[in-house]
Computed example of a mutant assay.
Amino acid sequence: MIEQAKQVKLMIFDVDGVMTDGGLYFTDAGEELKAFNSLDGHGLKMLQNSGVKLAIITGRQSQLVAHRARNLGIDYVHQGAHDKLASFQSLLAEVGLSAQDCGYMGDDVIDLPVMRRVAFAVSVPAAPELVQQYAHYVTGRQGGHGAVREVCELIMQSQNTWDAAMAPYLE
C-alpha cells in the first residue's frame, strides 16, 4: 500500500460518502446542503502544498461542491459524472498524467471502474464489501469524518513530505 501511495501525483476524490458523510440534506425550498469536514480540508491543502495535484469526480451536480473546490484551490472538478471512467480519462488528458500516476478515493460501485485502474485505490468503511475488495487501503475513519485527512497524511508520509508539512507547527 505504501508503494502505491508513493506513486500518486494526482489524488482524485468522490464527494458524497467520501468528502461528506453521504447524507443528502435538502431545505424545504429544495436547496441541497452538505457538511464538509474542516480537518479534511486542511489535509487537502497540505497534500496539495506537498506537490500532489487534487481533483474531484462526482456523479452529482452541486454549486456547493464547486464552492468547496474553489475554497480549497482544487482546479480539476468533474461534476455530473455518470460515467466516472470517461470523466477520469478526460481528466488524465487534461493534466497529462497516466492512470499509474493517480490515486482515487470512492465509496460505491460507480467508483470501481476508476479504482480498478489507478495506482492507489482507497475506500471508506461504509463502502460495500465489493468496493472494499478493490481498495488498496480502507480508511479507519468514515467519509465526512476525517477519512480524507487520513489519506492525505498517508500519502505525505509515504512520499516523505509529512515532516516538512508538520515543521511549521512544531517550531
Rank of each mutant, 00 (worst) to 15 (best):
L112D: 03
D16P: 07
D28R: 00
P125V: 12
V52P: 05
L92T: 10
A35G: 09
Y134P: 03
L47Y: 12
L170H: 13
G43T: 11
L72V: 03
I2R: 13
M105A: 04
A121W: 06
F26K: 05
V114Y: 11
N37I: 10
V18R: 03
L170M: 12
Y25Q: 07
G140E: 15
T139S: 07
S38Y: 03
H136C: 04
E129K: 14
V8Y: 05
I57E: 02
E94Q: 15
I2D: 10
Q63L: 12
M166C: 14
Y76V: 10
L47V: 05
K6L: 02
A5Q: 08
Q132A: 10
Q79W: 10
D14H: 07
M1R: 11
Q4W: 00
M19P: 02
E3D: 14
I12K: 12
A135Q: 08
L112W: 00
F26D: 01
N37Q: 08
L130G: 06
G43I: 13
L33H: 08
A55V: 09
S123D: 04
G73Q: 07
A167Y: 00
L39P: 02
V65M: 04
V148P: 11
D83H: 15
L24F: 14
F13P: 03
T139Q: 03
D108V: 01
S50G: 12
P168K: 03
L47I: 03
G143M: 07
V151K: 00
L85N: 14
A99W: 01
Y104D: 09
K6R: 15
T139P: 01
P113V: 12
Q7C: 08
D21A: 09
D108C: 07
I57N: 09
W162D: 14
R117K: 15
L24T: 11
M115C: 01
P128A: 09
A35D: 02
F88N: 06
D75W: 01
G23M: 06
L54V: 02
L24A: 09
V65T: 12
A127V: 11
V95G: 03
G22E: 10
S123H: 10
R141F: 14
L54T: 01
A164L: 13
T58R: 09
Y169T: 01
P125G: 05
D101P: 04
W162E: 14
R60Q: 12
A81C: 09
L112Y: 00
I57D: 04
Q48K: 15
H42K: 15
G144L: 06
M11S: 09
R149N: 11
G146C: 12
V18A: 04
G17D: 04
I56D: 01
Y76P: 03
F13S: 03
M105W: 05
M115D: 05
K53G: 09
F13M: 02
V52W: 01
T20Y: 00
L64D: 07
E153Y: 13
S158E: 06
G146K: 13
E150K: 12
C152S: 14
F13R: 05
D108W: 03
P113G: 08
K6F: 00
A81Q: 01
V95H: 04
A86P: 07
A127K: 08
G41I: 04
H42N: 10
H136F: 02
A66F: 07
A55H: 10
V124H: 05
G73A: 06
W162G: 09
V18M: 00
G140W: 09
H136E: 12
G80F: 10
L64V: 11
L91H: 14
